[in-house]
Design a protein around this nucleic acid. Sequence first.
DNA 1: CAGTGGTCTAGACCACCAT
DNA 2: TGGTGGTCTAGACCACTGC
Lengths: 242, 242
Amino acid sequence: MPSTKPRPLAPLYEQIRQLIVAALAAGEWRPGDALPSEAALAERFGASPGTVRRALDELTAEHLVERRQGSGTFVSTHAAPRQQFRFLRLVADDAAGSFTRELLGCRRMRATAEVARALGLRTAEPVIEVRRLLHRRDRPVVLDELWLPERHFEGLTADVIRNHPGALYALFEARFGVHMVRAEEKLRALAAAPEAARLLQVPEGEPLLSVERLAYTYGDRPVELRRGLYHTSADHYRNELN
Amino acid sequence: MPSTKPRPLAPLYEQIRQLIVAALAAGEWRPGDALPSEAALAERFGASPGTVRRALDELTAEHLVERRQGSGTFVSTHAAPRQQFRFLRLVADDAAGSFTRELLGCRRMRATAEVARALGLRTAEPVIEVRRLLHRRDRPVVLDELWLPERHFEGLTADVIRNHPGALYALFEARFGVHMVRAEEKLRALAAAPEAARLLQVPEGEPLLSVERLAYTYGDRPVELRRGLYHTSADHYRNELN
DNA sequence: CAGTGGTCTAGACCACCAT
DNA sequence: TGGTGGTCTAGACCACTGC
C-alpha cells in the first residue's frame, strides 16, 4: 500500500493569518475598523490567545493591521496621516516641504500588452489611465502615469479624483475597496523625452529617475501599474537596506 | 519631596537584545559562530526561555543572527552565499548573470568635509579610498567609490583586496572584524561626467543612477560611505515597498 | 539518540484607553 | 473601572540536525 503523503500543514498561526487576510479581502472588516479582540479571535479560530497573537504580530509587521494598546487592533488605512506617503520614497535633500497634486488626465483605454502582462489581464481588456504631476513649492518634481484594471475601479473619473482631498491610495480604498498592501519598484536613469521635459520644466535629455511600480492588494493580487519620472536635482529617493 | 522620575525601563527582551548586540560588537561571538542555546542564554540573563526567544527573533528579523532548527543560532556572516549580494539591489532586466570585480585603486587619504561628516570623523582624519568597477558579461555596469575610516581598516591595501576571493563585506568582516548590519541609500539620476563615462564606456552625459550609501555596523555606527554610479540600460535597481 | 529550535498552550500581571 | 493589548513566565510536545 503506497504511503499517503503526510501533507505538511502550515503552522496554526500561519493558517489563522491567512484566514484573517481572506476576511480582509472579503471586506468583513474595512480599513479603519477594529478587529475583534485577541480573545474573541482565539475563540473563533479555536486556538489559544498566544497563537492568535502571533498571527496578529505577523500582520502588524506587514502593515495590514495596527495595534493600539488599551484600544484594540485596527485594519490599516491609507487615510491615516502616517500612511500618507508610505509608498513615496522621494524626499527633498533639505527635507523640507510636501507635495501638491495636479491631475493631468484620466481616461478609459485598452490595456497594452505590457500593462496586461503586469496586471494579469488579457490584452485589450479595459483599463483606466491616470496622469498627474506632483509639485513641491510650485516646482514640478514627479510625473506619474498609472494604469488600473477597470473592473476594480468602475466609475473612476477625473472628477472623482479631483473631489477627493487625500492620497490616491486613500481614495482607492474608500471608494473602490481596494487597499494597497505592498509594491515592487524597478528604478533606472533615463533621459527626459520631449513631453516629460516640457511637463517637468527641464531641458530635453535631462537625467530623470524612472520608477516603475507594481502594487498589490490583499492576497498578492496586482492591481496597479505605475510609471513615475522623478526630477532629482533637489530631491532623492531614500531607501533602507537591512 | 519631588517625585523621582519613574524611568521607564525598556522591556526585558529589548534589554537582552541590546546585551547580545553589545556582545557581538565586542567580538564575543564572531560571524559564523554559534551562539549559546536559548536555555543557556536564558540562564545567563536570568530570564525565561520565551523572553530570550523573543530577543533572538528580533535579531533574526534584523539579520544579525540566523536560526537553524535542530542546529542552533548563528551569527550572520557576509561569507554566506545568501548574503553575498544582500546590499546590491541592481539586477539584470533579464535576471541573468552575475558580477565580476575589477579593482581600480586603493589609497590612503585625508577625509574631505563631506566624508568626515558622513562617517562622524574629524575633518582630515585618515581614510582609505577604494575605487572599483563591476562588470556583467564583460560590460562595465557599476563604478563604485568608497571611503573607510582608517582606524577600523588598518592595513587595507590593493593587494589585500585582490587576494580575497569573496565580497568586500566578507573581507571586512573576516580581516577587520567589521560586520555591516544595515545601510541607508540616496538615489538620483545624474549625467555621466567625463571620467565616469570613460570607465563605464558610455557617452558623456549618459543618464546614470547615482547611489550614495552609508553603511552601519553593530550599534548603528557608520563605517563606510560609498558612491556608486550604475549604468541602467540593461539593469535596474529593485526595491520592495511594504 | 541527545540537543536544538519551532509550535502551541495556559495563565499572571501590567500599561494604557475609553467611559 | 472594565476591556484592550504588552510583557513575562512555565512547560508540553514536535521537527530537525548531527553524531
